[in-house]
C-alpha cells in the first residue's frame, strides 16, 4: 500500500498554499484517512503555526532526511485528529538541506507506516524546494487567486507539473491536476472588478476543484492555529470541506460563488 502524494503549489507566494495544505490535510483526516502534512519551505517554517503545533516541534524534515531523527520522533500528532501528523520544515538557511533521495526516503517511510495521504506544502517560487515538493506527487492542488500575476504563475506551474515530475520523466500516468481558486469575492466579480471562476478556467484550460470565498474566518483561524476547515460555520471552512470531498471523488456543486442575497436593511445600507 503506497501513500497518495498531494502537492499544494502555486508559484506565487501569499495565495493560500499553507492555509490550503492545513485544511486539506485536516479534511482528509476528518474523512478517516491517515494523513501526514509536510512543510517544504526550508528556512521559512510556517505550517506549524497554521496547524497550531509550533511549540511542539522538536525534530524537523531536514533532521529526518539527514538521519538525525526518526520519522516517528519527528511527526507531530495533531491535537484534534489522532490520524493527522505534521512534519515541520527546518529553519536552517542551507538551501541544499533537502535532496531528492532524502525526500524519497521520507515519503517511502510514510508509505511503510501505513499513511493514506501525504500532503506536501510547497514553498513559493520554482526553485529547488518547490521542485522537490512536486517531484514525487500523484496529485497537485494548484492554488490560484483571481488576479493576473497569480493566474500567470499557476500556468507556469501547470507546465512544470506536466514535465518536471517523476511521473512525467518516467512517462507514467500524468499527475492529477486540481485548480483551487481562493480569495474569491463574488460581489467584486459581479461588478466586473475581479476575474470570474469561468475566466480563470478558460485562461488556464482546466476546471476548478473548488472555490474558497474571501473570508475573515481565514485570518481568525490562523490567529488561533486551527485550520479553517474545522470551523464548520465559516463559508471558507465549508468550501474547503466540499473541495476535500471532490478530491476524494464525490460530486458536489460549487457554493459561495454568487453574491449572497441581502436583507432589506443590508440593501439600503450595504454591508
Amino acid at each position: 500500500m503506497t501513500a497518495e502524494i498531494i502537492v499544494v503549489t502555486s508559484g506565487k507566494g501569499g495565495v493560500g498554499k499553507t492555509t490550503t495544505s492545513a485544511s486539506l490535510a485536516t479534511g482528509l483526516a476528518m474523512a478517516g484517512k491517515k494523513v501526514a502534512v509536510i512543510d517544504f519551505d526550508v528556512g521559512l517554517r510556517n505550517l506549524d503555526l497554521i496547524m497550531g503545533c509550533e511549540r511542539r516541534v522538536v525534530y524537523d524534515f531536514v533532521n529526518v532526511v539527514h538521519g538525525e531523527a526518526t520519522l516517528k520522533q519527528s511527526l507531530i500528532k495533531d491535537k484534534r485528529h489522532e490520524n493527522l501528523f505534521v512534519l515541520a520544515a527546518s529553519q536552517t538557511r542551507d538551501k541544499d538541506a533537502l535532496t531528492q533521495e532524502g525526500v524519497e526516503k521520507v515519503l517511502d517511510g510514510l508509505s511503510e507506516d501505513g499513511f493514506d495521504y501525504v500532503v506536501c506544502d510547497s514553498p513559493a517560487g520554482i526553485e529547488k524546494g518547490a521542485h522537490l515538493a512536486m517531484y514525487f506527487a500523484d496529485h497537485a492542488v494548484v492554488v490560484v487567486n483571481p488576479e493576473v500575476s497569480s493566474v500567470r504563475d499557476s500556468d507556469r506551474i501547470l507546465g512544470l507539473l506536466a514535465s518536471k515530475t517523476r511521473r512525467a520523466e518516467r512517462g507514467e500516468k500524468p499527475i492529477t491536476q486540481h485548480l483551487l481558486l481562493t480569495r474569491y469575492n463574488p460581489a467584486r466579480v459581479a461588478i466586473g472588478e475581479m476575474l470570474s471562476v469561468k475566466d480563470v478556467e478558460e485562461i488556464l484550460g482546466i476546471s476548478v476543484v473548488g472555490v474558497i470565498p474571501e473570508s475573515e474566518n481565514v485570518l481568525t483561524a490562523s490567529n488561533n492555529g486551527i485550520p479553517v476547515i474545522v470551523d464548520a460555520n465559516s463559508l471558507a471552512g465549508q468550501a474547503y470541506s466540499d473541495t476535500v470531498a471532490r478530491i476524494l471523488g464525490e460530486e458536489r456543486p460549487l457554493r459561495f460563488i454568487d453574491v449572497p442575497k441581502k436583507g432589506f436593511l443590508q440593501r439600503v445600507f450595504g454591508g
Binding site: 488576479e147 493576473v148 467584486r188 466579480v189 461588478i191 466586473g192 472588478e193 475581479m194 476575474l195 470570474s196 475566466d199 485562461i203 441581502k262 443590508q266 440593501r267 439600503v268 445600507f269 450595504g270 454591508g271
Partner: peptide, 18 residues
C-alpha cells in the same frame, strides 16, 4: 446599497485582466 454606491471606487477591469 446607497453606502456601497457612495463608497464604490473600482472600475470594471476584469475584462482587461482577462
Amino acid at each position: 446599497g446607497i453606502l456601497d454606491f457612495l463608497k464604490r471606487k473600482g472600475e470594471p477591469t476584469a475584462n482587461v485582466a482577462r
